[in-house]
Design a protein around this nucleic acid. Structure first.
Lengths: 146, 146
DNA sequence: ATAGCATCTACAGTGACTGTAGGGGCAAGC
DNA sequence: GCTTGCCCCTACAGTCACTGTAGATGCTAT
């Protein structure tokens, strides 16, 4: 378990140097020992923890959930129901986001397919944005001009 | 075109009171006239502009794109190619996010379906997070934001 | 006149970083 | 030994698009 500098830990884990220091400040990572010159020295466990963090962040877990997950990781004998719940909450959130984005995709497609590259006045994109029929309330396209 | 207070403008447009003031500060909305008591007074055009802003924000346009769109809205004779490009960029971004999130959805589903509610040590969720095999490729962390 | 909500300004806080300024550490080449 | 050049250090400001707060004032209804 040789020690590596923050730069190498960054390269190995895929977490940026500044972000590693930020995680240390936020307590996601404990402060590592330092070299005589004051540089941080990381071992293999730290790098593994960084990779864990990065993977979880990539999956959309926020830092609060990450704290929980890292706490759990330190207690392998505990029941995993908690981790399970966190993952389920993530999955629900991801599905909600997908549904919302697919709605946007449809609306943007509709806007673009109707665009005839004329002037702004008759542009479907602008009309679409002025038209709040898909949100709520009345619309008044003319009121925006001038 | 009767004038309304910020509260009513908020109700009619669906943009919160504080957010309206924030937009004014950022120049998305020009400073409206005031009542004798110093309260902001909005006309129908302002409310329409707020609805336009809200709709565009809902569709994921950021404030820089919004400035462009609002500028365009003021020049109805200009060609609409610019608005078109903005919408296309939005659509591409939305599709990238959807693809990224569907990847996450699959991974989370896999994690959860393998979880036997045992201990953390054998929990598929934790294993999955520790295992970086599924995430070596280039990453699009942005896909998770917003 | 009073109650009670709406509005005002000004500023701090959010999440998860990113960027900058101004310095010091460290290995290689001269 | 000295310089070059990259890596690292701390501390703090900036990002985005708001949200929240405090304390004062305006407006409306009773």
């Amino acid at each position: 378990m040789r020690d590596v500098t923050i730069g190498e830990a960054a390269r190995e884990s895929g977490v940026k140097v500044t972000t590693i220091r930020f995680y240390e400040e936020r307590g996601l990572l404990s402060a590592p020992p330092r070299s005589e010159g004051g540089q941080r020295l990381y071992g293999a466990k730290d790098v593994a923890r960084l990779r864990f963090i990065r993977h979880a962040r990539d999956l959309g877990f926020d830092m609060a959930a990450l704290s929980d997950l890292l706490e759990l990781a330190g207690h392998p004998d505990a029941p995993c129901a908690h981790a399970d719940r966190l993952a389920e909450a993530r999955l629900e959130d991801v599905r909600r986001r997908i549904a919302a984005l697919q709605g946007l995709e449809k609306e943007l497609e509709r806007m673009l397919s109707a665009c005839r590259s004329g002037t702004v006045e008759s542009c479907a994109v602008m009309e679409s944005l002025s038209d709040h029929a898909h949100c709520d309330g009345p619309h008044d396209t003319d009121a925006l001009k001038g």
